Amino acid sequence: MLIIDGPTVQRLYPMKDAVARMREAFTALGSDQVQQPLRKVLRMPGNRAFAVMPAQVSDPAAVTTTAFGVKTITVTPQNSERGLEVHNGLVLVFEPETGVPAAAVEAGSVTAIRTAAASAVATDLLAVPEAGTVAVLGTGVQARAHIEAMAAVRPVHTVRVWGRRPDRAKALADWAAGRLGVEASAHEQIEEATLGAEIICTTTASTEPVLFAAAVSPGAHINAVGASFPHARELDDAVVEGASVFVDRRESALNESGDLLAPLHAGRIGEDHIKGEIGELLVGRSTGRTSPDEITLFESLGLAVQDVVSAMHVWERAAAEGAGVAVSLAPAEH
């Protein structure tokens, strides 16, 4: 079995490859080729969580190889103030034919890359083709990954960053300017960042809404990725009510998305407010944007299939290049 650390994941899984793999994962999901129960989550004090997420892709044509595995991950929001990663854990994948453990892959890096790549797939399907101004709310790992991911699918020329800490917002804007060669700026007010932006990515750890309808311009596409539990929200009810909503998976969204559950429980939307899954768009079972002024929303919960497909890709690359640390799990002789 290979042990694959975060730097190796980042080297072997560039954003271009991740977007392609997420497109394949969503297509498999939309084609009913994925077995994936709802994730099991242990809630812990301090808004912390420990989650277990298994998945299997059954059709070899849907991804590089038939894949199955499980992600185990902790979510510790306080780590952002400690200089540590918020998401920590492992993705375990197994050799498809034998069931022998193939790799244990550092999950934080996988999560950061695949989440942004999934948003890129959604953005490519839903944002206006000429979208060039991106607003990012948040300054952490996901914020940085999303800037890179948006540039992979749209002609991004302007990046605006908002964060609770102005110094971190400026540092991220400076990074975007240097990395992508775009105009980038930090903003103290959310509206300054979002108004006029064709793409808005919310990547905060907030449990209360930070994005309100008055801060969203007609025609914008929103990737909401920070609130992945029922008690957490980034979007005001009016934002959700006024948008055409698309999700990674209906079952997950209706059980786990605080952004959707709050207006649903308030009677402001019904379950049919979800227009489709990203996989359904890819296989032609749902229709995406219908007008330039329509506001579209991708509510991202993160799916185990995304992690498993990503980890299988990393394992294959690592095995081919001799990367990672090989360990033996052979049972002891008696």
Rank of each mutant, 00 (worst) to 15 (best):
V121K: 04
A117S: 13
G140N: 03
A127C: 14
A118E: 10
L172A: 05
R179W: 10
A104P: 06
E148T: 07
W162L: 08
E208V: 13
S119N: 13
E106M: 03
A177E: 14
A205I: 08
E106W: 06
D174K: 04
L125W: 11
V210A: 12
E106Q: 11
G196T: 12
T194W: 00
T115N: 13
E198P: 15
A186K: 00
V141Q: 08
E208M: 07
I200D: 00
T111C: 05
V210W: 13
K170M: 14
S119C: 11
A205G: 08
A112K: 10
A104V: 11
S185C: 03
L126V: 12
A122M: 07
V141S: 04
R179A: 14
W162I: 08
A205K: 02
G181K: 04
S119F: 04
T207V: 14
G138T: 15
A193K: 02
A135Y: 00
G196S: 12
A120V: 12
V134L: 13
R179I: 02
A176H: 06
A102E: 05
G196V: 12
R164T: 15
G138E: 01
E191V: 09
D124M: 02
P101I: 05
G178V: 11
L172T: 01
H146Q: 13
Q189K: 13
G132N: 15
V121I: 06
A127F: 06
V156D: 00
E188S: 14
A103L: 05
I147D: 00
A186C: 04
A122I: 06
D167V: 07
I200A: 02
T204R: 02
R165L: 09
V134M: 03
G196N: 15
E208Q: 15
R144M: 09
A184P: 14
A149F: 03
